[in-house]
């Protein structure tokens, strides 16, 4: 269990949390709690159940948004990568979406879709989708030519080509797009709770700040980061089991 990589992980956790504790004790700022205080607040939030009811709220737009971005984003990305015309038609939208300052767009979304779940899902999608779409499209366009020729020469159909060559070959980039997209989706979910209506984890953050309960505020922030990291690790594991051997590059490298 305590092999080298795990030891290093433990060591870096000790260093990060240790410096947090020291910075809190100095204190760097009155509004910066120590690590131990924050963890206590986290335990209290969890014990009272506030944290879990908050996550039920926060995870709704997050799960729906990330789900839509993944399915729609990968499909659109595949289509863009396969068709020049569709690329010309659709990809500018995502380039603009990626470049747009989201906070400035939120008032427009609220005007159009109100303050409910729809707006929040939109915010998550705007954050998560562009990188998933653009990464998938780029990966599809760069499928090694000889693999496509191989599939053709051994009588593969167009569907074989897509499922057995293009998607697996694109999978490392698709997954890296997913990782970036999902972490952007987490940002979007919290941003929407801070900017649209305070619900869920965003509510804990806003409310604790307003009553100067800084340990609870940092506890909420810490918990969302932890969740995001755990989810990204899960994604990485999924990729490794699905496409074993792919992570070590192409044979022609």
């Amino acid at each position: 269990m305590l092999n080298r990589p795990n030891l290093l992980k433990l060591l870096s956790a000790v260093i990060v949390f240790g410096s947090w504790e020291i910075a809190g004790r100095v204190p760097v700022s009155y509004s910066f709690p120590t690590f131990v205080d924050s963890m206590q607040a986290l335990a209290v939030l969890a014990w009272e159940g506030t944290l879990f009811t908050a996550y039920v709220e926060t995870l709704k737009p997050l799960a729906v948004g990330v789900g839509i971005s993944t399915v729609l984003g990968i499909s659109l990305g595949l289509w863009i990568g396969l068709s020049k015309f569709f690329d010309w038609l659709v990809s500018p939208i995502f380039v603009v979406m990626q470049a747009a300052p989201l906070a400035a767009l939120i008032p427009l979304l609220v005007m159009a879709y109100g303050i409910g779940l729809t707006s929040k899902v939109f915010v998550v999608c705007i954050m998560a989708m562009p990188v998933i779409v653009l990464n998938t499209a780029g990966a599809v366009r760069h499928t090694p030519e000889s693999m496509k020729e191989m599939c053709n020469s051994f009588l593969g159909t167009r569907l074989d080509m897509l499922i057995k060559i293009i998607i697996p070959a694109a999978s490392p980039l698709i997954f890296s797009g997913l990782r970036l997209g999902v972490s952007a989706g987490f940002i979007g979910a919290i941003l929407s709770e801070l900017k649209i209506t305070p619900t869920g984890v965003g509510d804990i953050i806003t409310y604790s700040r307003s009553i100067a309960d800084y340990p609870s505020m940092y506890a909420a922030i810490f918990s969302i980061i932890l969740l995001a990291v755990l989810f990204l690790n899960l994604l990485e594991r999924t990729e490794k089991t699905l496409f074993k051997g792919n992570d070590l590059g192409y044979v022609s490298d």
């Binding site: 090694p144 000889s146 693999m147 020729e149 191989m150 057995k164 060559i165 697996p168 999978s171 496409f243 074993k244 051997g245 792919n246 070590l248 590059g249 192409y250 044979v251 022609s252």
Partner: peptide, 9 residues
């Protein structure tokens, strides 16, 4: 194929 064209996965 010259570059083998094997599936790395």
């Amino acid at each position: 194929f010259q570059d083998f064209a094997l599936l790395p996965w």
